[in-house]
Nucleic acid binder design. Structure first.
Lengths: 98, 98
DNA sequence: ACTCAGTTTAGCGTAATTGCTAATTAGCAG
DNA sequence: CTGCTAATTAGCAATTACGCTAAACTGAGT
């Protein structure tokens, strides 16, 4: 659901999480260490992002590895571009990439 | 502030307003007629969008003409693309696709 | 000034979001 | 099973968002 995506993006901390994940997958603990907020608060932000399918979680033994789901992010960007009027279908992002 | 933009975008009614405005400027009353919500509710959504500078208002006699501010919308889309690592004239682009 | 259509502001109730601490689950090691 | 670490869930208080109705404001016309 698109709504969940934009809602998830509406919090700066969550956008920042995505920015960190952009550089590569990361353990939940690593992510939490980057922020001032408490661990549980962090965990909930991650849950919101996961709910929106903006990130995926993968257990690695004791820890959990998060990685960004670029396709959903692309869809969101696409939706915004669609709002401007430069109409792009579903796959125009590749061309926009250069 | 970028935060206000994403927050404004987080409500479906407001994205729908933008979608309508994409086709051209529109009077506040016209916009309100398209939605089920009450007039004041509509007005507040418009205020939020204006606050985020996603739209601009212009008085025309006793009515108000709203139009979308494409540049802010572009910036938001750009920010999302930046989160992916693509395009956007941004800096670091590491391992993007896999 | 008075009225009217158009629009916003004020005030209220409800629901969602945020962030915390404390408690709990999940997996690994001994 | 016990203990340890990693991460989530539970429960709470405070803040913000939503949508409504009623009231107020704005500009045009009379």
């Amino acid at each position: 659901m698109q709504n969940a995506v934009f809602k998830a993006l509406s919090h700066p901390a969550r956008r920042q999480i995505l920015a960190l994940l952009r550089k590569g997958p990361r353990l939940a603990g690593d992510l939490a260490a980057e922020f001032d907020t408490s661990w549980p608060t962090m965990s909930r932000h991650l849950a919101v992002l996961k709910e929106a399918e903006l990130i995926t979680a993968e257990r690695q033994g004791n820890q959990i590895l998060y990685r960004v789901n670029t396709s959903v992010l692309e869809d969101a960007a696409s939706a915004l571009l669609g709002l401007i009027g430069r109409d792009n279908g579903d796959d125009t992002l590749k061309e926009a990439a250069e």
